[in-house]
Design a protein around this nucleic acid. Structure first.
Lengths: 338, 338
DNA sequence: AGACCGCGTGGAACCGGTTCCATCCTGCCC
DNA sequence: GGGCAGGATGGAACCGGTTCCACGCGGTCT
């Protein structure tokens, strides 16, 4: 309840408010004895400065805004944890904006990037339009994109094409010739473009290996386990079904595994499966997958943002984090007696 | 970049700052023509009030602080989503404090509940000490506990005893006589006491059914899948092993299932398993479990908090949400042929 | 000795809102 | 017509910090 102000402290210590403020901010221009007097007064009154007043006066909010879609998806949560942990050691607070609809996204993009609301902004996975980006830049709020890309902003991404390439090469190396792809659409309202890029890596790997690019082997639909299951069943119903499927996310890979079970196929004996992300449950399911550094992407994103707050880089930075094949129990040579 | 202030608007509209402020706050004491003049000036200058200044002047922060431990655990995330969604429709922002160590928890409990930081506080799952609660009350920041209880604060809880009772009764009704319990310790540094209460419900159900309370059937250890696996293996190694195990959380139930697989037991033919929480993956694993309304607990918690901000209830409220048995494929009569 | 430098300090002005009080004006009543 | 009530409005004071400017004082240089 106490509402001790800097003026109370000044009066108690017999000094001016300016001096108290200087002590609080570790200004060197205060003599030893005076500083001591102020410090004891602070302790005696149990004084703590009002952050709001400080912020108004300084023009800083000490808030970092984080805009994240569907933050219950395991991969987003893991990124967010990286952000939180890094921010926990600083004076900044984390203000969370969860987006689950286009309206909410647009409202966040419009209202959050304002100097008086946040000092910096982290946008995860959502791809802002050029107009959005222009607004971000005009607002003067330093912004970092994580898991999505725009040439005019600082970004932390992975090389999705390379990841898709890794996954597909792994299957090819095992001897697979007919490899299916299950991914999400690029044209969804949020435009998560990662699935598209992973598909590109898949295609490149096929080309490099001299394998045909069978259009029937590529299935794209909405994100989700059930959708993936449906798409995988379609692949398995082909006259010459694939012997391996690369799913553009672990969640979708789980759907593919369900489809295999429904079709009476053993994994990996009859069907190999590779996922993408390495979310926590992947290890439990022994899913071979492409790991992307989720936690680290949060750490790097917010670190980049904090750096930018100190001194903006002359050019936008794009930090590309490495992906890694994690080989578990859902991949094997085709027709192996598993 | 623009920094249009209320004084600019006043000058433009040819009125005083007070009048502009009154228009902004929908005060009825402004005549129609004047209001129009001010509104056009606001539009022309593209003015938006500075929330910081407003907050300082009003003494409100428009922030709701949420202190949550290990928010990557699926159940916490689901609660948090309920909070976020409810708060998204209000003028309040969600400031997140994630706690993963005792130090951080203590720091949060000490520093966050301050009038100048947050208008209201939501504490999830963490059990504050009496001293903490005293500090909360003294700070004057309205506080609501979710998934944990203290007599002096508003709480949103479930009846863990009843839930443990439900789970155990289900197993008894199926004909099980030797029922094991796997749960987390009450004495962990965070004192998540739910496991203890669920154990109490388990014991009550046994007593009511006239079954012996076998101390060897109760295993308690650290939270986590691996620990649960270890404990379940210990149970299964008994001379007369249980035919069913009630795990105090779904995560632990997964560990129990792993143990069953490792011991060569079929579920549910040789071993029935009941979990607790009904996290997303439970449905996928066809786990029989006690569902608690996670999302709703977040909604109710923050709703209660917002109500309290408007008018504090004379007595602390304890809102007890219902639990529900979700019967899936991991429970069956003992010795059934699967 | 006088001019000057610079450190330590006090306090006014400021950040951008809200609110309260004084003032003005209009209309009504006696 | 004078007095008064009450609605609309302007603007100062305030919220609680930071910062800048002015001032006093002791020491150094000429």
């Amino acid at each position: 309840m106490s509402s001790v102000t800097i003026r109370d402290v000044a009066r108690r210590a017999g000094v001016g408010v300016g001096t108290v403020s200087r002590v609080l901010n570790d200004s060197p221009a205060v003599s030893g004895p005076t500083r001591q007097r102020v410090l004891t007064a602070i302790k005696e009154l149990n004084y703590a400065p009002n952050p709001l007043a400080r912020q108004l006066s300084l023009g800083k909010t000490m808030n970092i805004g984080v805009i994240v879609p569907f933050f219950t998806r395991p991969s987003f949560v893991e990124r967010l944890r990286g952000v939180e942990q890094t921010l926990g050691n600083t004076a900044y607070d984390l203000v969370l904006y969860n987006v689950e609809s286009v309206e909410r996204r647009d409202r966040c993009f419009r209202e959050v990037p304002r100097r008086e609301r946040v000092d910096g902004l982290l946008v995860m996975t959502l791809t802002p339009t050029d107009a959005d980006v222009a607004r971000f830049l005009e607002s003067g709020v330093p912004t970092v994109l994580v898991d999505t890309y725009h040439p005019d902003l600082n970004c932390v991404t992975i090389d999705d094409v390379a990841g898709g390439h890794q996954a597909t090469c792994h299957l090819i190396a095992l001897g697979h010739r007919r490899i299916g792809f299950v991914g999400d659409l690029g044209e969804n309202p949020f435009d998560f473009s990662a699935g598209q890029l992973r598909l590109r890596g898949y295609r490149r790997a096929l080309r490099e290996a001299g394998l045909p690019e069978e259009p029937a082997h590529v299935q794209q639909g909405h994100y989700g386990r059930r959708e993936a299951r449906r798409m995988a069943l379609a692949l398995l119903a082909l006259p010459e079904p694939p012997t391996a499927i690369f799913a553009a996310s672990d969640t979708m890979a789980i759907g593919v595994a369900e489809a295999a079970a429904a079709a009476g196929l053993r994994v990996p004996a009859d069907l190999s499966i590779v996922g993408f992300d390495d979310i926590e449950i992947a290890a439990h399911l022994k899913l071979t997958t492409i790991r992307q550094p989720l936690f680290r992407s949060g750490v790097e994103g917010v670190t980049l943002l904090l750096d930018t707050l100190r001194a903006a880089p002359p050019q936008p930075v794009n930090l590309v984090l490495p992906t890694e094949l994690v080989s578990r129990a859902t991949t094997a040579p085709p027709g192996s007696s598993g």
